[in-house]
Design a protein around this nucleic acid. Sequence first.
DNA 1: AAGAAAAGTGATAGCCTCTAACTGAACGAT
DNA 2: ATCGTTCAGTTAGAGGCTATCACTTTTCTT
Lengths: 220, 220
Amino acid sequence: MTAADAGTPRERYRAQVRDEVKLHAREQIAAAGASALSLNAIAKRMGMSGPALYRYFANRDELITELVKDAYRSLADAVRDAPEGAGVAEFAHVLRAWALEDRQRYFLVYGTPIPGYEAPEDTTLIASEIMAVLLRACAAEPPAAPGTAAPDTTALDAHLAGHRAWAPDPAVPAAALSRALAVWTRLHGVLSLELSGHFVGMGFDPAELFAAEVRSLTGR
Amino acid sequence: MTAADAGTPRERYRAQVRDEVKLHAREQIAAAGASALSLNAIAKRMGMSGPALYRYFANRDELITELVKDAYRSLADAVRDAPEGAGVAEFAHVLRAWALEDRQRYFLVYGTPIPGYEAPEDTTLIASEIMAVLLRACAAEPPAAPGTAAPDTTALDAHLAGHRAWAPDPAVPAAALSRALAVWTRLHGVLSLELSGHFVGMGFDPAELFAAEVRSLTGR
DNA sequence: AAGAAAAGTGATAGCCTCTAACTGAACGAT
DNA sequence: ATCGTTCAGTTAGAGGCTATCACTTTTCTT
């Protein structure tokens, strides 16, 4: 489960320690945010001295990057493991469940970026994997419900038709692209504000708002 | 402009220094994010020793809180200064312009929160001021364009009708509430992902996506 | 001009990241 | 079985940070 079973005993031990470090890191991040993560504190909690951890992670940034990658991976797994042929509604449900399970993990992926920090290739690859799942869900579903009219995305569709570096597969129609972007941005909009606590004093149930947004995206 | 003109000379001097500190703080945040803000570095850049700044700000958190409050205030001013009777489209335009002007300022308001940090009363007051402007824009505008059908929000409206602690004015119809929430969350969804750089490798123009979202919100 | 209030200082405690030099244990090859 | 290498872990320490304290200097008030 924790990827600590491969090769020589030394490698296994190494992987085990790395996993334990990440475990404590996740706890620390959940408690006080990513900016409060301290290698020193983790080392002490593991019963070893600070510099020892530098055998396992080159620096603090590498540990955080690792956690970001894990978070991405975890989200990609979650949306990919949805039942075959699942649609936008299922995607939304899985996303929300994943986000609520650990809000700091969500922010690791979609939170405020640090200026100058460039996401490594790996994470952008996983990101496009997530996007691929969403695109598949959008393409497989009726582009709009019969009764209700879909929002007019023809102008956007035209633009996307010529700027689809992120979805080069010509089998995916342009309408699916704009739909995927709408799903992504709208769900993120509601989720992000909910997880940030911006709805706290307002009195309504964020789940209702999310559900309404999903309905509007799936054409009721 | 910088609120450094009131009362005794001492108070003026004090306000001036505080403003200068905040100026450097904003620069530092823009360069490396809020988590990299250092009172020490600011002091040195101002030609004084570290502890001197503690005469002006109780601690680092108070400085950041002040910057957050300023950011909120600035956004509230921006949306309030829109021409009288401005609608959702103007609101969206002002919001995007404000966000692009200084992305870190946007994240100060809508970015990843620090667990345990509670926004002071002031900021929530300003937040509701912003919301009031948005509500006014939503209420003043035709609830939906004639041709296109609006998304079905009746279920959400029913919920909001009973949970509108954030908009107790009965003159504002429930439909305006759900519309305001949609505007807020959807614009934030697009803007936040754009500012975070999540669209970077994708090849399309975020402005087009934003414009499409605004069209969909204003019923074309 | 004398006294009070406030601004600024250096010293210091206690965190942190990260490097460097060193010790000790496990491992592979002879 | 032993030797030499490799790797985990240690302490020491440089340099950064927040924040407090005691102290000096400046400035305002009376």
